[in-house]
Design a protein around this nucleic acid. Structure first.
Lengths: 180, 180
DNA sequence: AATCACCTATCTAGTGATAGATAGGCTTGA
DNA sequence: TCAAGCCTATCTATCACTAGATAGGTGATT
């Protein structure tokens, strides 16, 4: 019951961060959305930094979980696994107003409390690690490098689609990943 | 003399936006840096939106100017022209705390006044247009698509380098552009 | 040449709104 | 009974923004 509130706060904060950024969301706005008062959010998270860190950790967990699922689903089909990842991004491009938490916090990084800055590295490690493993399975010679390249393409493609308000941009960009 | 103040405000605001974002910079901080009062900034720019639009326009002008220079310098060497563009990004990666104005405002887009959102499209048109022209000169079959791909790579590479605090990431990412 | 009107660029002092944060009290269920 | 969860009420700091004043320069009229 009460645990729910805490989780809902994290969920809403995550959505807000991915959509408008860390510095642009407020306790009051989350509270209003939840039908409670901003003071009550401080009960669960003493400071905005605490909440931010928790969102980051939560996001990290979701990432890990999603990657585990994909890899369990396609243990011997790395190409399908990569396509699943791309499909997630494509879905975000087409159906949401959001960036990725990783992308948004990455852009804002110089304006974040150090505790959150620290979390950033793990987002990249998870994403690139997942991609790298697929490329390994595919027998590529420089799986790590290729992974960095694909991930940059995904991030750049997502950002560009939103910036130009053109979902097709993402598809065009990702097309070049067919040189996998 | 006095014209200078206005220009210095734009300059400082641009730096602040590229570093920490539109929603994270304040009139007071610019004023303090200039040794004046925030009220004086309102003399030059009635609202934050006005200033933001002016920064965007100014940035657009700088972009255009930089691209013109490169194209005049290498009218018959599109490869060198592209290398010049990449060198600019590489320099930003290694020597500054900044993102690009285009990258930063792109991430924040859902939190920007519409007047500034509108400017975004022109950043992409300029960047991608420049790259496309070089690919045309190089006789590529789908210069526009290739241009989108390279630009996404540059944006993603810049963001990733900052997010991981690893300049080498950019170099690794851009290496894949050697398939030009 | 002197005066009057206006402009530029800044100031002081303040507005109301909102930010994150805190102290202390009420309510409810185990 | 007592702690969890949320409340009211408030604080301090900062936000963008405004009103009104002032000092110094420009320029035209007399």
């Amino acid at each position: 019951m009460t645990k729910d509130t805490r989780e809902k706060i994290i969920e809403l904060a995550q959505e807000a961060i991915a959509t408008r950024g860390y510095s642009a969301f407020s306790f009051r706005e989350l509270a209003t959305a939840l039908g409670i008062k901003s003071a009550s959010i401080h009960y669960h998270f003493p400071t905005k930094t605490h909440l931010g860190v928790e969102v980051a950790r939560n996001y990290r967990g979701q990432l890990k979980h999603a990657f585990d699922n994909i890899e369990n689903g396609y243990p011997d089909d790395p190409k399908k696994a990569l396509e699943s990842l791309i499909a997630v991004y494509r879905y975000e491009v087409r159906s949401s107003q959001r960036m990725t938490v990783c992308t948004m916090l990455g852009a804002e990084i110089k304006n974040l409390p150090v505790e959150i800055q620290t979390e950033m590295k793990s987002f990249y490690d998870l994403n690139i690690g997942f991609i790298e493993r697929q490329f390994q399975k595919m027998g590529y010679e420089n799986p790590r490098e290729k992974a960095c390249q694909l991930f940059a393409l995904l991030q750049g493609g997502l950002m560009g689609s939103k910036g130009q308000n053109d979902p097709a941009y993402f598809d065009v960009v990702v097309k070049s990943a067919q040189l996998l």
